[in-house]
């Protein structure tokens, strides 16, 4: 299936990434070939095959409910583009 430029632009918007004209066209071609591959999978009769949710055949390992030390506050906020004391700071998000 061939994707339209609008499909790529919408995906970019949802992923919050900016693409220039040339990138939109390149991703349109690349994504189209991927979607075409899924079209082939969809054409198979898989009614009797249980869905596979994960590539590993394993089962989720678990841990016991024990508190472990985390990061000191200074380290937790160290890589933030902006911080204020113990807080992460972001552009205002409500009116």
């Amino acid at each position: 299936m061939e994707l339209a430029r609008e499909d790529v632009e919408r995906a970019a918007r949802l992923a919050a990434i900016a693409l220039d004209e040339e990138e939109v066209e390149r991703f349109r071609r690349d994504l189209s070939s991927m979607v075409t591959y899924f079209d082939r999978l969809l054409s198979l009769d898989l009614d009797d095959v249980p869905p596979m949710a994960h590539a590993s055949a394993g089962i989720a390992p678990t841990r016991s409910d024990e508190v472990q030390p985390g990061l000191p506050v200074e380290k937790a906020v160290a890589n933030a583009p902006q911080s204020d004391g113990p807080f992460f700071v972001v552009p205002r998000i409500i009116e």
């Binding site: 024990e66 985390g70 990061l71 506050v73 113990p86």
Partner: peptide, 17 residues
């Protein structure tokens, strides 16, 4: 993760990677 769930701790004191 192993961070505490205790309510009312100082901001960002119960975090990890």
């Amino acid at each position: 993760c192993g961070c505490s769930t205790a309510f009312g701790a100082p901001p960002n004191s119960q975090t990890c990677p």
